[in-house]
């Protein structure tokens, strides 16, 4: 058997037996239930959001709602949980010395580990997708072929997004010797990238465009029977552009834009669009991906960069 496949096979076998994998799967199951419940609710609320969700299926609505952002927050934890001790635990337990004393190159070891984790993550995401579709069918939510195609089209991007955090975890696991310390570092880093940084970016962008957003020309408008403070369109767009620029280094920005595009949301959603018509438009998956190619490239780069650093560092490390 090829050394990479041998290591990958062992890795999948061991990872599928870890508690952390089952904890994340349980959260996935709960999310799938929550998502399907949200779909049912959105069906009953259709008249209220008629204009906003015009022409969209419940599945499209679900994957462009808070469910999608919950998923984009959870996937990093799946990647990080599988990556944070991928190397240091083997060093700590001495198993790396056993394996690397066998006829294989160091890069085959790290590639095998990476491949094994990728398979585990793929299995986890696929399981979640299958569960979501099954629950939707069980609860009577209509699921069409187009919905399933769109969902499957998101798989490579959900995978690459999760892999970004797997390789960040790998990197931590190479630099931090103790798995317990590495876990804390990984959690803090993921929380910062996923939650803290977008908040900071929002505050900074708001501070930069405060004058425009709060100017005297701002209007009060009625949306869904509630009074909302509407900034002028130009001010909103400037704020939005700055925010997007700042969030460019956050993987979730690109992931959410790619998922949104696959599920048919308009490429640029301005204030006027948000309150003036549907956020969806009819187009093929290929067209959607063309619209977000920059985001796809950014995701690939964000995955490759930490992987290259982890790889280089591992190749030169003393494995005591």
């Amino acid at each position: 058997m090829h050394p990479i496949l041998n290591i990958a096979q062992k890795e999948v076998y061991l990872q599928l037996k870890t508690k952390r994998f089952y904890i994340i799967l349980t959260i996935f199951v709960l999310m799938a239930f929550g998502g399907v419940y949200l779909m049912k609710w959105s069906l009953s609320q259709t008249p209220q959001f008629e204009k906003l969700y015009e022409g969209a299926s419940p599945f499209q609505i679900m994957f462009t709602s808070s469910f999608s952002s919950a998923l984009s927050n959870l996937l990093p934890f799946l990647g990080g949980a599988l990556g944070y001790d991928i190397i240091n635990r083997e060093i700590q337990e001495g198993t790396i010395k056993l394996t690397l004393s066998k006829p294989l190159y160091r890069d085959q070891f790290i590639n095998g580990k990476f491949l094994g984790s990728t398979i585990t993550i793929t299995l986890g995401i696929l399981l979640f997708y299958v569960l979501t579709i099954s629950l939707a069918l069980i609860f009577g939510v209509p699921v069409g072929m187009r919905d399933i195609t769109m969902l499957l089209a998101t798989l490579p991007f959900s995978l690459i997004y999760t892999l970004i955090f797997l390789v960040i975890g790998m990197l931590i696991s190479i630099f931090v010797k103790k798995p317990s310390t590495a876990l804390i570092v990984a959690i803090i880093l993921i929380i910062f990238i996923e939650l803290v940084y977008p908040m900071i970016a929002g505050v900074i962008a708001f501070a930069m465009h405060r004058e425009e957003l709060m100017s005297a020309t701002s209007q009060m408008v009625m949306v869904n029977n509630t009074t909302q403070y509407m900034a002028p369109q130009q001010g909103f767009e400037n704020y939005y552009k700055t925010l997007r620029r700042m969030l460019y280094i956050a993987p979730s920005t690109h992931y959410n834009s790619v998922i949104g595009a696959i599920f048919g949301t308009k490429a640029e959603i301005s204030g006027a669009t948000l309150f003036g018509g549907s956020i969806f438009e009819e187009r093929s998956i290929g067209e959607s991906l063309t619209l977000v190619w920059q985001g796809i490239v950014a995701l690939v780069v964000m995955f490759l960069l930490p992987f290259a650093i982890a790889y280089t560092k591992f190749m030169k490390a003393d494995l005591r």
Binding site: M1, P3, N6, K10, Y13, L14, K17, E93, G94, T95, K97, L98, T99, S101, K102, P103, L104
Partner: peptide, 30 residues
């Protein structure tokens, strides 16, 4: 490495694998 066998100090085998599976994993490299 094809011609060398190594027993490390303070190491352990893969705890979640059986004795057979551990040896099978290492044998797969040859």
């Amino acid at each position: 490495k094809e011609r060398v066998g190594y027993l490390p100090e303070n190491a352990t085998v893969y705890d979640e694998l059986t004795a057979w599976r551990n040896l099978e994993f290492f044998a797969n490299f040859y």
